[in-house]
Amino acid sequence: MTDAPQTESPAADEQTAAADPPVDVALDGLAAAVPGARFERLAAPTGHAQDVLVVDRDGYPDLVAAVHEAGYDVFVDLCAVDYLSRDPRFEVVVVLLDHDAGRRVRIRTGVPGGDPSIASITRVFPGANFYEREAFDLFGIDFEGHPDLTRILLPDDWEGHPLRKDYPVGSVPVQFKEAHKVT
């Protein structure tokens, strides 16, 4: 063990604050290779520009694997969104990072409300395990191929999926019981 942790200035000097990394040509190529996928870069007025890949459900596992191959090997986030009146109703959003190149990408996939199921990516990213369970718990999206798709945040016997838009916020009237006055 060294006496103290090494302090290093990482390669951040190359990246100044305002300058965004150049548009990732590889992502564009990946989107062209996977059917139904497209690449877009959202300009951000006050922050960093965001690279987004949009893909349909069939191309999703292939695209995630391809993006992983392209160097985005850090699993960051997976969440679902319920757009309710839009078709497809749900969207699964995956955020990945590439530490070496300092890049971030977001993959958005539509999931229809009538058949809310999508392939699991836990074999590519083991870290997606809890996140997919969370999306299953709160949105009822079935991740096919997930090793242990059970409720994670709510009790096992819970009914419904609370973050869906047709699930009420829910409230219990508050009443004070057993409140005694101090003599």
């Binding site: 409300g113 009538g114 009822g140 798709l149 009914e159 999926h161 047709d166």
Partner: peptide, 16 residues
């Protein structure tokens, strides 16, 4: 909620 959406598929139920 819609019946089809609320119910996990048989495989998910089995896992559970």
């Amino acid at each position: 909620p819609p019946e089809s959406a609320a119910q996990p598929s048989p495989t998910a139920r089995q896992r559970r």
